[in-house]
Computed example of a mutant assay.
Amino acid sequence: MADLENEVEVPRFFLCPISLEIMKDPVTLSTGITYDRDTIENWLFSRKNNVCPVTKQVVADIDLTPNHTLRRLIQSWCTLNASSGVERYPTPRPPISKTEITKLLKDLNSPNHQMKSLTRLKSIVLESEKNKRLMESVGAADYLSNIITNINSGITSSSRDEALYILYHIKLSPIGLKTLGKTGGLFDALRCIMQRAWSYEARAYAVMLLKSMSEVAEPMQVTSLNVEFFKELVNILTDQISEKATKATLKLLISVCPWGRNRIKAVEAGIVSVLIDALLDCSEKRVTELISMVLVQECQAADGPAELLKHGGGLAVVSGMVFGVSPVASERAVRILYSVAMFSGSVRVLQEMIELGVVEKLVLVLQVDCGRKMKEKAREILKIHSRVWKKSQCITYDLI
């Protein structure tokens, strides 16, 4: 069409203000400016802008009103200039509307229409970012969470799985997630779905949704989690459902462990041993970095360092992270070693740190270019235990 525009004079008001191309499906924003639908939807939803590109006004209402008059004018102009090679744009298919989505949501309350409505809602939410925002704006999260929380009702597991899938893929805004977190019984329902009796896919989406909710949750919601909740997270990691589920579980732990007694609860649930096992089998840098962050937090709990030492490979795998994965993992590994040396530094442990080369690596930390805090931790460990380590015949260098 660009070449044709050089030969045929195109009326300026036929052009989209963003793409500067003829509009196939002109729609008018609440600010009164008309754009091509695909272009403005990409601007608002995919690129997550909330202002009108022309007026710079904040767009409060995301409804796009079809400009039928302008579309007919463009189609007529295309027909009149067909001899010059201008092709007529077909009439666009009507987009999904709030009214249609609302009807589908209400049909969820009918057992006879529930699965059919869920199937249609699933296709709608996967179609575009705009549809996700529409579904959030009409309160889809309330209807879907109601299906998920009714664990003991006549709702089938298939319906619950579909509702969970859709709710996760809406990708609720922070405000939407915060509101969702206040839904009575949802945290408990998602914990139940994480259990091994459910499908791998449902368990994965449950933990991924919990991860998103925890990032904006109220302190009271996070501190009220019980040991059983952390046991289910341990099972998710043990079962290795998927890489996405593993990362979501680790991020969820990072988000909730600093609150209240959650570190202690996680340790009681057996998280430390599972994390060490995961590190032994892990070859993905990002996963290793996430595990190292969780271990940093767990080793701040009273029994955390002792649990790490109970694992035959605990010290060795943490030592292996120093200069073995990434600068981030190295810094976190030194923090873990600091917790072990400070709070569980028995003679046996200190001897094992020599045999595994931990002391040598701590000395190396002081000699190479790395973070200030990492050096401080290493120096403090060496300073406190240098009297013990200097007596070892394995140490042939000066300790600070």
Rank of each mutant, 00 (worst) to 15 (best):
A248W: 12
K247V: 15
M194K: 01
Q297Y: 12
G270C: 05
A302H: 12
L295T: 09
M208H: 03
M220T: 13
L308M: 13
G314H: 00
L250H: 07
E201W: 07
L250K: 04
G314M: 03
K211Y: 12
L209D: 02
I241K: 02
E284K: 10
A206C: 03
L290E: 15
Q240A: 03
D281N: 05
I264N: 05
A266F: 01
V207N: 07
A204T: 12
V274A: 03
V227G: 00
R196P: 00
Y205L: 12
G260E: 07
Q300T: 08
I254M: 15
V274F: 02
F229K: 04
M220H: 10
P305Y: 07
V207Q: 07
A202Y: 06
V256W: 01
E215L: 14
R203P: 01
D303K: 13
A301T: 14
A197P: 00
K265A: 00
I271C: 10
D239N: 14
N235Q: 15
S214F: 09
S273W: 00
L225T: 05
A301E: 12
G313R: 09
G314F: 01
S212Q: 07
H311N: 10
N262K: 00
S283Q: 06
I193A: 01
E268C: 10
V287R: 05
L308W: 06
L252T: 14
Q195Y: 05
V267T: 11
P305E: 11
L290Q: 13
I271K: 01
R261Q: 04
E307K: 10
A301N: 13
L280A: 04
R203D: 07
V222W: 10
G260M: 09
L309Q: 03
D303N: 15
P258G: 02
V207Y: 08
E228S: 11
A266L: 02
E268R: 07
H311A: 08
E243T: 11
E232Q: 14
W259R: 03
R263C: 09
S212E: 09
Q221V: 08
G270I: 13
A248F: 12
E215V: 11
K211Q: 15
G313F: 06
V256N: 01
G312K: 12
F229M: 11
I264D: 11
I276V: 03
A202W: 08
Q221A: 11
P305F: 10
V234T: 14
Q195E: 14
T249L: 14
L280V: 09
M293Y: 08
L279I: 00
V267N: 05
V272E: 01
V207S: 07
L252D: 11
L275M: 02
V272A: 03
K251L: 15
F229S: 09
I254D: 13
V216T: 10
D303G: 10
A206L: 02
W259V: 03
Q240W: 02
S199E: 06
A306H: 09
K265E: 01
K231S: 15
A302P: 05
Y200D: 06
N235Y: 12
M293N: 13
G314K: 01
I264M: 08
V296N: 06
N262W: 00
C282W: 06
A306T: 15
F230P: 00
Y200P: 04
C257V: 08
A306C: 13
P258V: 02
K231F: 13
L210G: 02
H311L: 06
S224E: 11
Q240G: 04
M213G: 09
V207M: 11
